[in-house]
């Protein structure tokens, strides 16, 4: 459903991505693995329209979306959960979620979405009236995923959801990601935590210095000697 063909991008004189091609099939979880600075986040930002391409095309559900502005891409159904704690700290948790519905605000139906999000993340229901800045790191991560789901995405882009979370929380979070996927949302996942990401994904790509080095079914990559040595610490 999502297809990047030969995309490149750069920040000023620094080349960030070089001829990257990858695809996410409907109903899949695909992960993009790599070290810090390899180009993972840039790839997501190219898809979301935050970073302009210098070459290549991006197609979504057969439609060429190359060069579209961010809000149009979100409206088309690709929603990114950025890395870090990108919440609205002084708004309440409920208002943070509500703003996820911005682009379909005139269509209504937000109440049902709140119910759905609170089912995934009961903690958010308990804290609905608190300012989002008072949440713990793990809760803020859940809030960002919840906010993205409020937009009813057709494809979810997750940037380093495990960053800064305890192993127990990471496990919980990936349990929820699996549920979200089971409910019909395909996911493109960017991770440094290769072991967790490979276990959760169908297909994986490995990116190094802005280029795709390797790709294949996640099961196969878990057994690949090179991947084991470089990313799984074995």
């Amino acid at each position: 459903m999502l297809e990047l063909s030969g995309i490149s991008a750069s920040y000023g004189a620094i080349r960030a991505l070089e001829n990257v091609s990858l695809s996410v099939a409907a109903g899949r979880i695909v992960c993009l693995l790599g070290a810090n600075g390899a180009g993972k986040t840039t790839t997501l930002n190219c898809i979301s329209g935050v970073v302009p391409l210098t070459a290549g095309r991006i197609r979504f559900e057969g439609e060429d979306i190359t060069g579209w502005p961010i809000d149009r891409i979100v409206a088309r159904g690709i929603v990114q959960v950025p890395e870090g704690r990108e919440i609205f700290p002084e708004l309440t948790v409920a208002d943070n979620l509500l703003l996820g519905t911005w682009l379909r605000r005139r269509k209504g139906g937000a109440a049902r979405d709140f119910e759905r999000i609170y089912n995934y993340f009961p903690r958010l229901r308990e804290r609905a009236r608190q300012p989002a800045g008072t949440l713990s790191g793990g809760e803020q991560q859940m809030l960002m995923i919840g906010r993205a789901l409020m937009a009813q995405p057709k494809l979810l882009l997750l940037d380093e959801p495990s960053l800064g979370l305890s192993p127990l929380l990471v496990q919980q979070l990936f349990g929820i990601i699996a549920r979200v996927h089971a409910d019909g949302v395909p996911i493109l996942l960017v991770e440094q935590n290769a072991a967790v990401a490979l276990a959760a994904s169908h297909h994986a790509y490995i990116i190094e210095n802005g280029e795709i080095r390797l790709d294949g079914p996640a099961r196969d990559l878990e057994q690949n000697e090179e991947v084991k040595a470089a990313y799984l610490g074995a």
């Binding site: 961010i70 700290p89 708004l91 208002d95």
Partner: peptide, 20 residues
Amino acid sequence: LTGKALRATSQNPRAAALVG
């Protein structure tokens, strides 16, 4: 909602852009 979106934009423009 528009007022909340304005506050959201001032608190975190990047996140605001990513929700559209």
